[in-house]
Design a protein around this nucleic acid. Structure first.
Lengths: 196, 196
DNA sequence: CAGATATTAAGACTAGGTCTTAAAAGGTGA
DNA sequence: TCACCTTTTAAGACCTAGTCTTAATATCTG
């Protein structure tokens, strides 16, 4: 009776084929699965899979959003609280992209990114550069973990800030770092002051 | 004679509009720039800008590739040379996503990512975790810069490696870091050996 | 005003779908 | 074996966001 109908099997293959390559047209799918194009359309409808163009568009938007979240703009993670010049708190959830497949452990640079960008956000200046970072990873972090980072300015001498960032997962400290950050007060071209 | 023709001005606006939102159709562009659809098409042709669907597709592929490069799999940057257990070299170009818009300076965690992932790659073990990192940013790095990272194992005690990573831009050292990395030899669940 | 350049229009075609309606094929129970 | 029902395929009309070609109009400039 319900011996996995040909239909179900085909729909599974369809799903798999699109997971593998979302840029397949219905025609290509029809060929690959040895069914007619209308059948493919029915299957897509049944599975709630949109047409190629919609899929492409979603992928574009999606990937872009993730890129922005990871790469550009503001802070890595969500800024929860900020007292400019004093302290700040941010939160970040470990997504599948952040972990090494073999071990399931989050790659260190994402945690560093959260800490570093929070440290920079706390500085009360239009721009700032990280100079030195001392970092300690205490406990490995895994997918789905929710990291809470707390940054505190512990010293400020002229444009030089010393900032401590501690990251906790479920109230257990998993990471801590000390950043020495230099703020750049004016728009002047004085970026070479600490080079050579 | 060449007083910036209306045409040129319109084409600039077109480029800007698409930079801002690449999902605009010709019709929407025509409305926005107060020209006819055919004009928009001619302008696109002149500027070598493909149609909406092509743009969307390229974005999807592009962003996905970048995501992979930044987020998942292997190394951040390109692995150029690797002597397992001894040294390694990787290269990474600073893309627009990596820089802060205000200052044009690369965000520190990308450079950290390159260094850290290279350091991990050098370890001759199935898996490894970063324990401690001491990091110094010497010179700010900008968009388009080509960073060459060189990692070297300087000490190894049992499962604990000390690795130096130096990054140069155009033969000038811009970053250096020391990593203490613990390798995990077996598949056993001994991840808590260095916690608390 | 002539001539060149820029712009718009008109028509035919395309891909990769949509949605609706209809026909054919196939297996199953009585 | 027939009738029924599900599954599959087909056929036709429509859509978007283009393509490419050819032709007609504006508009500016010397």
């Amino acid at each position: 009776m319900s011996m996995i109908s040909r239909k179900q099997q085909r729909q599974q293959s369809l799903q798999a084929a699109l997971d593998d390559n979302p840029f397949l047209t219905d025609e290509q799918l029809a060929q690959q699965l040895e069914a007619s194009v209308p059948t493919i359309r029915l299957d897509r409808l049944a599975l709630g899979i949109p047409e190629l163009r919609e899929r492409t568009k979603h992928m574009a938007l999606d990937a872009q959003k993730k890129l922005q979240a990871i790469a550009s703009e503001d802070i890595v993670g969500q800024l929860i609280d900020l007292e400019l010049g004093h302290s700040g708190i941010s939160m970040m959830q470990i997504t599948p992209e952040m972990v090494l497949k073999r071990t399931g452990v989050a790659r260190g640079h994402f945690i560093f990114a959260q800490a570093n960008s929070l440290a920079l956000a706390v500085i009360d200046a239009p721009a700032a550069l990280t100079g030195i970072a001392n970092v300690k990873y205490k406990v490995p972090v895994h997918q789905g973990d929710n990291l809470v980072a707390r940054a505190e300015v512990v010293r400020k001498v002229e444009t030089k800030y010393t900032i401590w960032v501690k990251i906790r997962n479920n109230n257990k400290e998993v990471f801590r770092a000390k950043f020495l950050i230099v703020s750049i007060p004016k728009e002047g071209d004085n970026e070479n002051e600490n080079s050579r």
